[in-house]
């Protein structure tokens, strides 16, 4: 299988990418590591007229500390997040989630910004970043704006990004020494999550996010509220699927996904030391 014809444009910096987006408008699609986009293009589910390749934009590949925040360039690869000491020290949930994306080959190509911008609700990194209260820095013709992880995805593979905007940085508030848990259920090792649950403790509170329990990644608001109100982890986990509308597909029925959300939330809370 090969993609439908397109014109290839290489953009080796954020500025070059923005210029290409300005020139080609709605017809252009940004290509980062390509581990989600290229399969869609090969299946002709995506047929962009122009592909703007930012995979070698070195100015967007970095992990650095910025006070109480980890600043991660959008073109940082999964394998580099897994091995970055500042990530394992200050956001171990993110490093762990990155270590389970696809397989080693995929992690050598795929990028955190590509995963976030693709907005697949079953993806590991957006699920973890939502529990970490991350925010996303976006650059466009009018300058930069920062969008919270909660506000970023608007639907299945849909985000608030405008066609002429580029995701440049992921900002993760440090969670140094805080407990966390991540549970991902798959039928095969390299599958996307049937359901995933991320738990991040922070300052006495506990955030819980759900992967593949709706058209976007979601916070388990009822379960979080139950915990905050003094419920046990087991009781709170029973509310993990409250208000969700998970899809039914070849891997799981909607009811099975709800069951998984409750069980995996309980296990992720236990991993984070909540019982």
């Amino acid at each position: 299988m090969i993609p439908a014809p397109f014109d290839y444009v290489r953009a080796d910096s954020a500025d070059a990418a923005l210029a290409a987006l300005r020139e080609h408008g709605d017809d252009a699609k940004l290509l980062a590591g390509g581990q989600s986009l290229l399969p869609l293009m090969k299946l002709r589910l995506a047929t962009p007229g122009v592909v703007v390749d930012v995979s070698r934009a070195a100015d967007l590949a970095y992990v650095r500390e910025d006070g109480d925040v980890l600043a991660i360039g959008a073109l940082t690869r999964h394998c580099d997040i897994v091995s970055a000491e500042v990530v394992t020290a200050h956001a171990p949930l993110l490093a762990h989630a990155a270590s389970g994306v696809g397989d080693r080959q995929v992690r050598h190509r795929g990028t955190i910004g590509g995963s976030v911008a693709h907005a697949d609700p079953s993806a590991d990194l957006p699920t973890a970043l939502l529990a970490l209260d991350a925010s996303y820095v976006v650059r466009g013709p009018a300058g930069e704006r920062t969008i919270t992880a909660t506000e970023f995805a608007t639907g299945f593979l849909e985000t608030v990004l405008a066609p002429d905007e580029l995701l440049i940085e992921i900002r993760v508030p440090k969670a140094t020494g805080e407990a966390w848990g991540y549970q991902k259920f798959t039928r095969r090792a390299i599958d996307w999550a049937t359901v995933a649950v991320a738990v991040q403790a922070r300052g006495g509170g506990t955030a819980i996010s759900l992967g593949n329990m709706g058209s976007t990644v979601l916070r388990a608001a009822s379960a979080e509220a139950a915990l905050a109100g003094g419920a046990s982890a087991a009781d709170a986990a029973q509310h993990a699927d409250d208000g969700t509308e998970p899809a039914a597909d070849v891997t799981a029925s909607a009811d099975y996904r709800r069951h998984l959300a409750r069980v995996l939330t309980k296990r992720a809370l236990a991993a984070a030391g909540r019982s």
Binding site: R10, L31, G34, L38, P39, V51, Q105, H108, R109
Partner: peptide, 14 residues
């Protein structure tokens, strides 16, 4: 580094 060459554009590896 290992990659899956069915999921990499030839142009990207110039």
């Amino acid at each position: 580094e290992s990659v899956k060459s069915c999921t990499v554009l030839a142009a990207s590896v110039d």
